[in-house]
Simulated scan of single mutants.
Amino acid sequence: MNAALARLGGHVWRLGALILVSVAALQLYFLARVALMAVVDPQSTAFQRSEAWRLLVEKNRIEWSQQWADYERISPNLKRAVIASEDAGFADHSGVQWDAIERAWERNQQAEARAARINAERERRAAARQGRRPPSAQATPKPPARVQAKVVGGSTITQQLAKNLFLGSERSLARKAQEIVVTFMLESLLSKQRILEIYLNSVEWGEGVFGAEAAARHYFHVGADRLGARAAAQLAVMLPAPKRFEKRPHSAYVIGRAGTVMARMGAVEPP
C-alpha cells in the first residue's frame, strides 16, 4: 500500500513539474516575442490569424486590408481620440487599472443576473401559455428567445494589445491572468509610444480591416496621417464593436459619441 502511494505521489510530482516547466517555457516564449517587438514590427496577431481562418471557412475567401504605418505617419488626432475613448490614463498607468477591472466585473455580474431574471420570466410565461392551451392543441413548445448579458471590459490599451497579440477571445480566469502577465511584459520592455504604434497598426476596424491606415482609407478615403479630429473620433468610437458599426460608420450614435470623444481629446497628450 505504501509503495503504491509512493508511486502515485511520484507520478503527481512529475506531472506538476511538467506543468510548471511548460508554463515557464510559454512565458519565456511570450517574453522573447515581446522583446523582439522593440525593433521588429509584428506581421500578424493571434486574433488576426483566427479571423483569417474564420473568413476562409465561412466565405471561402479572405478579404483583407492592412498596411503598416509608422508612428509618425499616424495622425495625432487618431492617437488622441483612441486614448480619450479607450484608455484615458494610458500615459500614466503601468498597464493594468485594477479599479476599472473591479468595476467591469461588478457591472458584468449585475448584467448576468438581470439577464437570468428576464430569461426565467420568459420561460415562466411561455410555460403558462402552453398550459392554457387545450390538450389537443398542445405541441412541443418553442423555447423563448434568451437574453444575453451585455459584457463590458475594463481593459487598458496595453491589455487589449496583449490579448490580440497572443491570446484567444474566451473568457476565463486563466486567460485573464495570462493577459495581465503579458501586459506587464509589454510595459516593461516597450515604450508607451511603441505600444500605441503596434496597437493602432493591429487593432480591428471592421471585418478584414486592420490598422489605422486601412481604416482611414476604408472609411474616409485618406491616409492615416491625414485624419481630422472628427474622423479620428468616429474611428475611436467604433473600436469596442467594429463589426457592429462598420455597416453604419456615420450613424447618429457614432456621430454623437464622436462629439463626446472630441471634447476629451484636447486634454490628451500622445506619448
Rank of each mutant, 00 (worst) to 15 (best):
A241L: 09
V261K: 01
I255S: 13
I255R: 14
R264G: 14
R264M: 14
K243E: 15
S251Y: 01
E197Y: 08
R194Q: 11
A232W: 00
G228K: 07
M185D: 04
M265I: 11
I195A: 03
P240K: 03
L239D: 01
A231F: 09
H218Y: 14
A236S: 06
T183C: 11
V222M: 03
R230P: 07
N201M: 11
P242M: 07
L186H: 01
H218I: 11
F245W: 11
A214K: 05
E204R: 05
R194L: 10
P249S: 07
G206P: 02
G259H: 04
V203P: 05
A214H: 06
L186M: 08
I198Y: 00
W205V: 02
R194F: 09
G228F: 09
R217A: 14
F210K: 01
H250F: 14
T260D: 12
A215S: 08
R217K: 15
M262A: 01
V222R: 06
R226F: 12
L196M: 05
A233Q: 00
F220E: 09
L196K: 01
P240W: 07
V237Y: 05
P242V: 06
S191W: 05
M238R: 00
H221Q: 15
A215L: 05
H250Q: 13
F184T: 08
T183P: 07
P249H: 07
M238P: 02
M238K: 00
I255Q: 14
S251F: 01
V209I: 10
A252C: 10
E187H: 06
V268E: 05
E187Q: 10
G256T: 06
F245T: 02
A224D: 08
Y219G: 03
V261G: 01
L227P: 02
G223P: 10
G211K: 00
L189T: 08
M262N: 00
V237R: 02
I195K: 02
I255D: 15
S188I: 12
E213V: 11
A229P: 07
S191K: 07
G223R: 08
H250S: 15
V209A: 03
W205E: 05
R248M: 13
H218M: 15
Y199S: 13
V261T: 04
K192W: 04
A216F: 06
V261W: 00
V261F: 02
S251E: 08
E207P: 08
M238C: 04
K247E: 15
L190I: 06
G259C: 06
A232F: 02
V209H: 01
Y253M: 09
E246R: 10
A241N: 11
A212Q: 02
A241S: 12
V254R: 07
Y199V: 09
T183R: 04
V182I: 14
A236D: 05
I255P: 12
A232T: 00
A263S: 15
Y199H: 10
W205I: 08
S188Y: 10
I195F: 03
T260C: 11
M185P: 03
R226I: 13
H221F: 15
E187K: 06
S202D: 08
Q234L: 15
W205Q: 04
A212K: 03
M262V: 05
F210Q: 02
